[in-house]
Design a protein around this nucleic acid. Structure first.
Lengths: 107, 107
DNA sequence: TTAATATGTAGATATACTTAAACATATAGT
DNA sequence: ACTATATGTTTAAGTATATCTACATATTAA
């Protein structure tokens, strides 16, 4: 009985119900995916460096960066006038693993 | 020189550029996440059984099911009048693992 | 063939998202 | 203090998505 309740709670508090929704929304956009891929060869980028790699406007890139920061995909660090963004690799991997485990619980 | 080209191609053909975009879009919607969670305690469901668990209309549920089928998250099987849907666990897990590996390649 | 049941499709509407232009803020240098 | 540079915010427009109603298709039973 208690075990059943416990497993129901586990489902309810599982990743597929809460913050992974925001994460998947953030990851669904191709521009944002391309932004992430920029970090393959360099750890940090300031906003204008990222914007210069796209045809999109700087405010648009800024919007995407802030959205990804809010959903914990990116972090930022201020250094003088510039703001450097980087990828939160461990957070992303943990979330993906968590979802994979949830899926594993399906019949 | 050639190695550089090769690594650029590797990035281009990675998961974060192609079908995972559709996958993440499909997974971003809360209704679709809830539909997936239905399969935790039962392997297959027909459309009306799924629809009966939501306040949304049946065509709306049908729309979500077809979208998830197109993005390979779900499969369907026809049996008489009914169509039974199930979750493609292995596909989802492979895709999540693939993205996790791509992220791992970031600096 | 007709009726009933299960599901899908088409068109319309409402909401959310992406984008850009214009404006605002913050920092560094002169 | 003033100017230039880097970034963020606001507002508005265009586009995409979710949803519903009405209609269409497919299968089974009478």
């Amino acid at each position: 009985m208690l075990k059943h309740v416990k497993s129901k709670m586990a489902v309810k508090s599982s990743c597929l119900c809460c913050e992974c929704s925001e994460f998947f929304s953030a990851m669904a956009d191709k521009t944002r995916q391309e932004i992430i891929m920029i970090f393959v060869h360099q750890k940090e980028f300031c906003v204008s460096d990222i914007a210069s790699r796209f045809t999109l406007s700087r405010p648009t890139i800024s919007h995407h960066l802030n959205l990804m920061k809010r959903s914990k995909i990116l972090s930022s660090r201020k250094e003088g006038k510039e703001i450097f963004y980087s990828v939160n690799k461990s957070y992303i991997k943990e979330l993906l693993t968590s979802v994979a485990n949830d899926i594993d619980c399906c019949c």
